[in-house]
Computed example of a mutant assay.
Amino acid sequence: MYTFLNNKKVITVQEDATIEEVAGILTENNISGAPVINKEGNLVGIVTEEDLLHKETNPRTPGFVNILGAFIYINGLERYREDFKKLAANKALEIMTTDVITVDGDTEIEQVAALMVDNDINRVPVVENNSIIGIISRADIVKTLARRF
């Protein structure tokens, strides 16, 4: 069990927070992402610096093939739609990632590390009954591994 590395002081963002408020929270707390919660305190998403970068970039163009004047999209259309949605976002609810990978308090550190690597994510909320009870970052895992050696 990894409870000794579970950061229980979780900095969260309200789902109705403005993009400016989200950027301020991340900056003030020197973090690169935060769970998004609703008024009941339940996890509804996660917002990261990467999400905020979409406000300053153009949507990534999907791959397509032009056959007799018709565009047939072969990949990236969903990513383009997500990019465009984030470009127009004004609130955390509109820019956050909703498909959040979480763990419970009994998950082994090796499983958490594998989730991070396999899904290219930097933090994993620890959730119990849809409420956040902690968060684990890549730095937390590295610190724990350093203590083992």
Rank of each mutant, 00 (worst) to 15 (best):
122 N>Y: 11
132 I>R: 00
142 V>K: 07
141 I>E: 01
119 N>E: 11
139 A>H: 10
118 D>E: 14
116 M>T: 09
131 S>M: 12
125 P>G: 06
130 N>D: 15
127 V>E: 02
127 V>Y: 02
133 I>D: 03
141 I>L: 13
135 I>E: 01
122 N>C: 06
126 V>L: 06
144 T>A: 14
131 S>R: 15
116 M>G: 09
117 V>K: 12
125 P>H: 07
131 S>Y: 14
120 D>G: 08
116 M>Q: 11
131 S>K: 14
135 I>P: 01
128 E>V: 11
128 E>T: 12
125 P>S: 08
141 I>Y: 03
133 I>S: 05
142 V>Y: 09
136 I>H: 00
118 D>T: 11
126 V>G: 01
136 I>T: 04
146 A>D: 09
136 I>V: 15
121 I>Q: 08
120 D>A: 15
117 V>Q: 10
135 I>C: 04
126 V>E: 00
140 D>W: 00
141 I>D: 02
124 V>Q: 04
144 T>I: 07
140 D>S: 05
125 P>K: 05
145 L>M: 14
127 V>I: 13
139 A>V: 11
117 V>D: 11
128 E>G: 05
146 A>P: 00
117 V>M: 10
137 S>G: 10
120 D>H: 15
128 E>C: 06
129 N>S: 13
142 V>P: 01
134 G>A: 07
142 V>G: 05
130 N>H: 11
116 M>E: 10
122 N>P: 04
130 N>M: 08
147 R>V: 09
123 R>I: 07
127 V>D: 01
141 I>P: 00
145 L>S: 06
